[in-house]
């Protein structure tokens, strides 16, 4: 091969190299090191005999299961609620009405607000010493601000879910709206003229058409909410804590022996979310398009 006459395959390979480097070295590299540590394998400090002790202690700890259930509940509920509301919002926003531009802008505004800031806002508004509690007290609806229902630090993770829903509706909504706009309304017109009611048209035509967009957006939301640390750390109850919070606690434990456990937990989180996403994609595809 002459220089300057690279084949297309070589060119593509070279162009992809920087991205590949980041993925392979940083991502898989980190994953490999995490994996090694989770097996108690760390030649640098003399640990040359890999074992499963970290995994055993993760899986024999009752807190892990409670944390898993809580984390699944947070991720699943947030994803479902924000997907449904986002589809509803997109259905409204694609119609033409006076002031649509402004509504659209407001709808997307909180995309720019960092999660952390949103969480602190939630804290100010919804905690038992927060604005809503005080307002409710002021208007005599509750005797003391602390009688306000526990929406943050609560066992059902309502505050966390609220925060995720608030943040993810515009994210999914923008994707779904773009999707709807590119599809247009003609398919729905066909369905109506073939005798489908409004609901049937949505269920059998629009929903399957936007489904790939909804699916990829909601998978991203699910994976993010399942693995995110900062929101449950700020808004979550102490026990049980969400899995990433639990893992981080182990990682920063004074007892260095807890570190492999933290790594094992991180690996488990990654595997679990991959497995759940797989089933979610399979199941929902069959339900919507079958």
């Amino acid at each position: 091969m002459e220089v300057g006459h690279l084949s297309d395959r070589t060119k593509i390979f070279l162009l992809l190299l920087p991205a590949m480097f980041i993925i392979v070295v940083l991502f898989f590299g980190g994953l490999m090191i995490g994996l090694m540590r989770s097996f108690n394998y760390m030649p640098v400090i003399g640990l040359t005999e890999p074992d499963l002790s970290a995994y055993i202690s993760v899986f024999t700890d009752r807190e892990f299961y409670l944390s898993f259930l809580l984390t699944f509940h947070i991720a699943f509920t947030s994803t479902v609620i924000s997907s449904i509301l986002a589809i509803g919002a997109a259905l409204l926003l694609r119609r033409s009405f006076v002031g649509r531009g402004i509504v659209n802008f407001l709808f997307q505004l909180n995309l720019t607000v960092p999660h952390l800031v949103g969480a602190i806002g939630m804290l100010y508004l919804f905690s038992q010493s927060g604005s809503f509690a005080r307002l409710a007290h002021e208007f005599g609806m509750i005797a003391r601000p602390s009688d306000f229902p526990a929406l943050v630090f609560d066992p059902y993770a309502i505050g966390i879910i609220l925060q995720y829903v608030w943040k993810e509706i515009p994210f999914i909504g923008v994707i779904v709206l773009a999707n709807m706009q590119s599809i247009g309304e003609d398919y729905e017109s066909v369905a109506r003229s073939l005798g489908a009611s409004k609901w049937q048209t949505f269920r059998y035509v629009l929903l399957p058409l936007i489904f790939p967009g909804v699916l990829s957006a909601s998978v991203m939301v699910f994976a993010f909410t399942f693995g995110a640390y900062e929101i449950p750390a700020i808004l979550g109850a102490n026990f049980p804590a969400a899995l990433p919070v639990l893992a981080y606690r182990k990682y920063t434990d004074v007892d260095l022996a807890a570190r492999p456990e933290a790594m094992a937990m991180a690996i488990v989180i990654a595997l679990l979310s991959a497995v759940m996403i797989y089933f979610y994609v399979r199941y929902s595809r069959r339900r919507i398009r079958g």
Binding site: D186, S189, V190, S193, A196, L209
Partner: peptide, 19 residues
């Protein structure tokens, strides 16, 4: 309503449901 009129429209680009 469109679904009650007994009118069916065939569009120029056919618009078969792709899935």
């Amino acid at each position: 309503k469109p679904e009650d009129r007994g009118v069916v429209m065939v569009f120029q680009n056919y618009l078969l449901f792709p899935y």
